[in-house]
Design a protein around this nucleic acid. Sequence first.
DNA 1: GGGCTGTATCGACCACGGACGATGAGTCAC
DNA 2: GTGACTCATCGTCCGTGGTCGATACAGCCC
Lengths: 73, 73
Amino acid sequence: MDVRQRLALNLRRLRQARGLGQEKFALEHGFDRTYISGIERGVRNPTILVLERLAIALEVPVEELLKAPPERA
Amino acid sequence: MDVRQRLALNLRRLRQARGLGQEKFALEHGFDRTYISGIERGVRNPTILVLERLAIALEVPVEELLKAPPERA
DNA sequence: GGGCTGTATCGACCACGGACGATGAGTCAC
DNA sequence: GTGACTCATCGTCCGTGGTCGATACAGCCC
């Protein structure tokens, strides 16, 4: 599984765990909704500065976003 | 310290630990020498796919590149 | 039915990521 | 001195990252 897939799953999991939809999450943290959608589909290739902004938004360390996500079907 | 600085220090440390110069490292792993130089100076903002390629080149997990580097003066 | 929320997906735009060449400075050994 | 090696830095170029608007399609509730 490549980095984008891991980021996709982690972002979706952590965002949903905070009870936020893509649009609300994007709006609150200064991203574009279509961009968040693209990341969660694994089709986007964000830079590490975006990665850091995501980590701050989710209040997790940056590494957390890149780890192999917990086994979930 | 922002992500780029942490990446810069980790890349330089790990690359040197492998006894490689910037140019040799770049050449062997399909990067441009000036690009590696830019990353190690913290002025570049690579994408996560590049991050993954760097991790593979250095044979470390991706998270390793983003961690706060060991205290070194 | 019509309204909402959440997501996916498209086209277009501009700024920047990433590759390349050339130059220069520093340290070595000769 | 000249050479070899390592690194920093510049300018240029193309592709894509990142933003925006619009559309579409579910599910749910009125």
